[in-house]
């Protein structure tokens, strides 16, 4: 009976934790599916333990316990696999961002230098002249 309570508590804790994490936006929904499933299984098994032996027998496994271990193993593996896939995607995206940031930085630097050299090229003798300024600005915008 105590073990049953303990198991039920574990299942409930997992489910509540998931609920809180999702509601606060700390966890994207797609990561929670496996955990939700694990929590539900724990809960069901705790509430009605004979179900394990029933399923185990149906699958040809002698010990109900072993079925639980297999379940846990598979769940862990799926989570790890999902994380590996996510890590690959993130690595890939970070790399693409880094490459494009580097190129853009060079382009921005070049354009700033061009604009500055153009500013420097306008004769300082006519500081308030309205005739030159619009032209200079228009060229700057094109860049």
């Amino acid at each position: 009976m105590t073990a049953q309570l303990f198991g039920a508590a574990l299942g409930v804790i997992t489910l509540v934790l998931m609920y809180l994490l999702i509601r606060r936006g700390w966890l994207k929904e797609k990561y929670t599916l496996v955990w939700l499933f694990a929590g539900l299984v724990t809960l069901v098994v705790a509430v009605y333990p004979p179900i394990i032996n029933g399923i185990a027998r149906a699958l040809g496994i002698h010990q109900g316990m072993n079925l639980l271990f297999v379940f846990a193993d598979v769940a862990m593996m799926l989570v790890c696999l999902q994380l590996s896939v996510e890590a690959s995607t993130l690595t890939y995206r970070t790399r693409a961002l880094a490459e494009d940031v580097a190129i853009l930085r060079l382009e921005v630097e070049n354009q700033r230098r061009q604009i500055e050299s153009m500013k420097g090229a306008t004769p300082p003798a006519e500081p308030a002249s309205g005739a030159l300024a619009p032209g200079a600005r228009r060229e700057g915008e094109e860049l």
Partner: peptide, 16 residues
Amino acid sequence: VVTLPFNLGVGGALRT
């Protein structure tokens, strides 16, 4: 000079 924000390896540098 194009400067990558962190080390990507030759392949990353090349694709840049």
